[in-house]
Design a protein around this nucleic acid. Structure first.
Lengths: 160, 160
DNA sequence: TTGTAATTGAATATCATTCTCAATTACATT
DNA sequence: AATGTAATTGAGAATGATATTCAATTACAA
C-alpha cells in the first residue's frame, strides 16, 4: 500500500530539514494514509484515537505544515470554518467545485488550465508553486431543491 | 463618483430583502467606496474612524454579507489570517496571483478561463455563481531575493 | 554513552469572527 | 404626524480553530 511510500518521502523530508522522525509523526502518517479524499485536522486526530494512538491535537497541528512541506498533502478549500486537506500522492492535479448550499466538493481535472497558468506566470515573471481553479455554486442535487424552495439561501439574489 | 451608484444598488438590495437603510450602513458604504483594491474588515473599521463615524466593528462584520449579497464586493483570497475583500463595481472579472513570500496580490484577467469553466459546469450540471483561478508562488521581486537567500522559506523544498 | 537540539502533551493564549441582549431606530401603516 | 413592530445597534462576551508556552522527554549525531 501507499503507506510505505508516504513514510519514505516524509523521512527524507525530515532528514533534509534536520527534523526527527518520531513515533508520533509515524502515527500521524498512518492516520493520513487512511483518510478519504477530503479531511481536516480534527479528522486526523479522530483517526489517531481509533488507532489507539495518544498523539495530541497540538501535535497534529504541528505536523500539518510538515506534511504539506514534504509534498504529501495540500490545502483544498478554505473559506469554510476549517481548512480542508487532501493527499496528493499519486493523484493527478485537479480542481474543485464547491456547493455553497450543501458543502459538497466535486473534483475535476482540466489540462487547459495548466496552459493558461503557464502563460500568465511567464508574462508576469511569477514562479508558480501551486494553482487552483475553484468554482462555487449549486450542485445538481441542490439545484433541484432550489425549485422546491428548500434551500439555504440567505438573501434574495439573482443568478447570472 | 461611484459612491452614489454604490448607495443606489445597496438600497435596492436592502428593500428587496426587507432590510433597513440605516445611518450606519450608509457610513459603511462610504468607507468601502474609499478603499483600495484589497482590504479587510479591520480596514473598513479604521476608515470609519477616520470619517469620525462610530460604527462598531460588530456592525462592520454584520454589514459585510449584505455588501457581498448586494453585489458590491466579493471575497478575494482566503488562506491568510483574515479574509480579504475587493469591490467589484465596474471592475472586470479577474483572478489573483499571490506571492507566498511577501503576500503581494497581482490581479490578472483571463477570458479563456471562463470558457473552460462554463464547459465544466455544464458537464456536471453545476450552477456556478462564482469562480476563481488562484496562483500561488513567488513574485518577480521575491525571486530575486531567493537568489540572495533573503527569503522567508520555512522548509527546504524543491521547485517544480 | 552522551550532549543537545528537537519534540511532546497539557494547558493556555490568540484573535478573527459571531452572538447576546437591552436599548434604539427605520419605516410601513394608520 | 403618531404608532407599532421588526430590524438594527453597540458593548461586551462567546466561539472555536489554530498557535504557543513550558517543563519533561526523546531522537540521533558524534
Amino acid at each position: 500500500m501507499a503507506f510505505a511510500i508516504y513514510e519514505e518521502q516524509f523521512r527524507y523530508f525530515l532528514k533534509r530539514n534536520n527534523l526527527k522522525f518520531t513515533k508520533e509523526r509515524r502515527e500521524v502518517i498512518a492516520a493520513i494514509a487512511i483518510q478519504r479524499n477530503h479531511f481536516n485536522a480534527e479528522d486526523i486526530h479522530q483517526q489517531l484515537k481509533k488507532q489507539k494512538s495518544n498523539v495530541s491535537l497540538a501535535t497534529v497541528y504541528r505536523t500539518i505544515p510538515l506534511l504539506i512541506g514534504s509534498g504529501l498533502m495540500t490545502e483544498t478549500t478554505y473559506g469554510g470554518e476549517r481548512i480542508i486537506y487532501e493527499k496528493i500522492y499519486n493523484k493527478p492535479h485537479h480542481h474543485h467545485m464547491v456547493c455553497i448550499n450543501c458543502g459538497k466538493i466535486i473534483d475535476f481535472t482540466c489540462p487547459d488550465v495548466e496552459i493558461v497558468q503557464n502563460d500568465i506566470c511567464q508574462k508576469n515573471f511569477f514562479l508558480s508553486t501551486e494553482y487552483r481553479l475553484e468554482i462555487k455554486g449549486y450542485c445538481q442535487t441542490c439545484r433541484k431543491k432550489m425549485k422546491n424552495k428548500k434551500m439555504n439561501r440567505t438573501f434574495i439574489q439573482e443568478f447570472k
